[in-house]
């Protein structure tokens, strides 16, 4: 049970986003991929669930090469992966409970009563008990993320992917989402990939942290190794120093540098 990303390359037009990215995540492990906005973290995550196809390299989940899977094989693989979107991506036209049960409707053996019970159980697991009849528009940002997570775990996935799970949340809600991610790992035993630019959150939840820089896995290590790294790019990102990160010199202004 693992996610293996090998030499992943992806371009959009002339712009090369991923230039040979490698990563591995196993059972009961949270691997965080960090980097500034726009470096391709979400693009990377979308390859894992087959929403994007690589130009070169491969993503292997549970022994299946995602880029070569189609039709029912890809659908089966996707049922083993829970994806928590950056802005939750809840279906506006449905209630929260219907959102959570959406993936189960297509599966064999799931009666409406069973789906309802499972949706309620998942909502309770993320702290949203009794909110199943609400509409997504009636939820706060943190509640929407929780509802998105409830939908992702409804099918008891073996893998969980989080796209910027704490972006736009206040510090208290961020901490509760972080704790939720740790609980999901411990209770479900899932292999987890988290892409984030929130280093506080990454240090709190990750077993291993990979810095995505210039389309590659620039640095991979446990949180302590990342904290003590002497690499200027790593230090620049962790300390939020643009001069170090972009190589224009510590503390120097960064006019004209990409952000």
């Amino acid at each position: 049970m693992s996610i293996e990303i090998r030499g992943l390359r992806k371009s959009f037009g002339e712009k090369e986003i991923l230039r040979g990215f490698d990563l591995q995540a196993g059972e009961n492990e949270i691997a965080a991929i960090v980097g500034p906005s726009g470096v391709g973290k979400s693009v990377l995550l979308k390859h894992v669930v087959g929403l994007l196809r690589p130009d070169a390299g491969s993503v292997v989940v549970d022994g299946t090469t995602v880029g070569e899977s189609h039709g029912s094989a890809l659908a089966d693989l996707r049922r083993r992966i829970g994806y928590v979107f950056q802005f939750a991506a809840l279906f506006d036209s449905m209630t929260v409970a219907e959102n959570v049960g959406m993936g189960l409707r297509r599966a064999a053996g799931w009666t409406p009563d069973r789906i309802r019970a499972r949706a309620e159980a998942c909502l309770a697991m993320v702290g949203l008990e009794g909110m199943g009849s609400r509409r997504p528009a009636d939820l706060s940002g943190g509640q929407r993320k929780r509802a998105g997570l409830a939908r992702a775990i409804a099918f008891s996935p073996k893998y969980l992917l989080y796209d910027e799970p704490t972006t736009g949340l206040d510090p208290v809600t961020t901490t509760s989402i972080d704790r939720l991610m740790l609980r999901m790992r411990d209770e479900l035993g899932v292999a987890t990939l988290v892409v984030t630019h929130d280093m506080t959150s990454a240090f709190r939840v990750a077993d291993r942290i990979t810095l995505l820089h210039e389309g590659r896995a620039w640095f991979t290590g446990v949180p302590a190794e990342v904290r003590s790294s002497g690499d200027p790019v790593v230090r620049g990102f962790v300390e939020g120093d643009p001069g170090l990160y972009y190589g224009t010199g510590a503390g120097e202004p960064t006019a004209g540098r990409p952000r």
């Binding site: 929403l51 994806y83 979107f85």
Partner: peptide, 11 residues
């Protein structure tokens, strides 16, 4: 709003 992507991830 990525709801189409969400549909795909739900098979």
């Amino acid at each position: 709003t990525e709801q189409v992507d969400a549909l795909e991830t739900l098979a």
